[in-house]
């Protein structure tokens, strides 16, 4: 049963990723990206990561797609881009990508998955009071320092975006 759901979701996500990179119209690509984020979030729920699935929908399908659509709205796409490279480089790039994929699959087949299991199994998380609480406890103790750095990065990104997009002073 779980495997059937997994296959359906993975086929949807691969299809929508292909749609993202192949559509001429950028709005269609953005909507396919939303579909990709939703199917990925379904995969996260399937594997037992509910909080990450919810954040995926809030952050990616909500916030980031809105930024994309705003920028698409502001730019004249008809004369903005030709978006055309020849057939030869395209074939070359696709061939290189397939080669890279074969390399990843080769490495995956050689890897051994005998890591040491940590303590946070499904029953243990249920006993400790749910995924969100446990994740928050780890994030604010063990990962406090990276968390602060990420908040600083977000602040810098906000200031940087404002400075970059601000119109230069009129002469």
């Amino acid at each position: 049963m779980k495997q059937v759901v997994f296959f359906i979701l993975s086929i949807i996500s691969i299809f929508s990723a292909l749609m993202v990179i192949s559509r001429k119209n950028v709005v269609h690509s953005a909507l396919s990206l939303v579909l990709l984020f939703f199917s990925t979030s379904g995969l996260f729920v399937l594997i037992g990561a509910e909080l990450v699935a919810a954040l995926q929908i809030f952050l990616y399908a909500g916030a980031i797609i809105v930024i994309y659509l705003f920028v698409i709205m502001m730019i004249d796409l008809r004369k903005g881009t030709t978006d055309d490279i020849g057939t030869m480089p395209k074939m070359f790039i696709v061939g290189a990508g397939v080669l890279f994929f074969a390399e990843i699959i080769y490495l995956l087949s050689k890897a051994n998955y005998s890591g040491i299991k940590d303590i946070y199994s499904g029953e243990k998380i249920k006993e400790l009071g749910g995924m969100t609480g446990v994740l928050a406890k780890i994030m604010y103790t063990k990962y406090l320092y990276p968390f602060e750095i990420v908040s600083l990065i977000l602040l810098i990104a906000m200031i940087g975006a404002i400075v970059l997009a601000k119109r230069a002073d009129k002469k």
Partner: peptide, 9 residues
């Protein structure tokens, strides 16, 4: 990333 030229893409 490699075959498109549109920066939004």
């Amino acid at each position: 990333f490699l075959i498109r030229r549109n920066i939004i893409l």
